[in-house]
């Protein structure tokens, strides 16, 4: 493998990892703050991709899809928290697993009713459609680079909000010691609602940005759900920095696994997970006890 194709694979891996980070950071935030395991997280990734397809087909503008998709996901997140999720706080994990499983069945069937079972593709925005010629035979699509830049910007925004703002302080304090934070007068019913909605938005955002480079199809939620779970297990629950490390590891491992072991590429990430479990059962940046 020469240097250029190595670099291309690395770039692919990083790009994949960055999208994974978007989705998984939403998952890990919801775990960390709400203490709720949300198996329906992948369904919101699929929702984002389908919204991207639907709005782009209606308006012809990918940007409208980006803005509209985020807005719809945010409202859906607020509604779901209000109707279902808030009844799960403090319930055992089993109830959370079952409720989110029921939610998956409902969301998937709604997807079926609204958008059908067909496979769709989404055009990338006009000025991002070209590709950069690297050598005679190799080129790299501009849109993939744009995904990297966009995801890095979102990641930077997440870190800034969590580390530098008052809201971020509440979120960090809530993840650290919920009861003490509540005793200090923080209203968790409000915090929970917005954290859940932001988590949903992050999953949907992942779906929207990958829609132009991958197809939009029923069942796309499942693989993303498993991968973002593996990312959270690798990084440690509730740790956004851990999710970033885990996502990049998985992205790069998957990308190179596909090159070196095409038949067993899906195995590389599980071997990685098994290794981390043997080494640090609570994740790379996880605290000792949950």
């Amino acid at each position: 493998m020469d240097l250029v194709s190595f670099a291309v694979q690395l770039l692919n891996g990083v790009q994949y990892g960055l999208v994974l980070f978007l989705v998984a950071s939403g998952l890990t935030l919801v775990f960390g703050i709400l203490g709720v395991i949300n198996l329906a997280h992948g369904a919101f990734y699929m929702l984002g991709a389908y919204l991207a397809y639907w709005i782009t087909a209606r308006t012809g503008s990918f940007w409208a899809a980006l803005v509209g998709g985020v807005a719809i996901a945010f409202v859906v997140g607020l509604l779901l928290e209000e109707i279902f999720v808030k009844r799960l706080y403090g319930r055992d994990h089993l109830a959370q697993v079952l409720l989110s499983f029921g939610l998956i069945l409902v969301l998937d069937e709604i997807r079926h009713i609204l958008f059908g079972k067909d496979v769709h593709s989404v055009p990338a925005p006009e000025f991002l459609r070209g590709s950069i010629q690297l050598t005679e035979v190799l080129s790299y699509p501009v849109y993939r680079l744009a995904i990297c830049v966009f995801c890095l910007a979102v990641a930077a925004a997440i870190f800034l909000v969590i580390q530098k703002t008052r809201i971020g302080m509440i979120v960090r304090a809530g993840a650290e010691n919920r009861d003490m934070t509540r005793a200090l007068g923080i209203r968790f019913d409000v915090v929970n609602r917005y954290v859940f909605a932001v988590g949903i938005v992050l999953a949907a955002l992942g779906g929207i940005v990958v829609a132009p480079i991958s197809t939009v199809f029923p069942g796309m939620d499942n693989q993303m759900l498993i991968l973002s779970f593996v990312v959270v297990v690798l990084g440690g629950i509730g740790s956004v920095a851990g999710a970033a490390i885990g996502a990049l590891l998985i992205g790069v491992a998957d990308s190179f696994g596909k090159v070196f072991m095409p038949n067993f590429s899906s195995f590389t990430i599980y071997v990685l997970m098994a290794a981390v479990l043997l080494w640090r059962p609570n994740g790379i940046l996880g605290r000792r006890e949950i």
Binding site: F31, H93, N222, F229, N263, S266, A274, P281, N282, I290
Partner: peptide
């Protein structure tokens, strides 16, 4: 491997390993 973990972790790890077998039969 999974029993080294607790609670939410256990759920997620068993889910991931189960899907590993799924993808084994799905992809090969």
């Amino acid at each position: 491997l999974s029993l080294r973990t607790r609670g939410i972790y256990f759920i997620m790890v068993t889910l991931a390993f189960g899907e590993m077998l799924f993808f084994f039969f799905h992809d090969t």
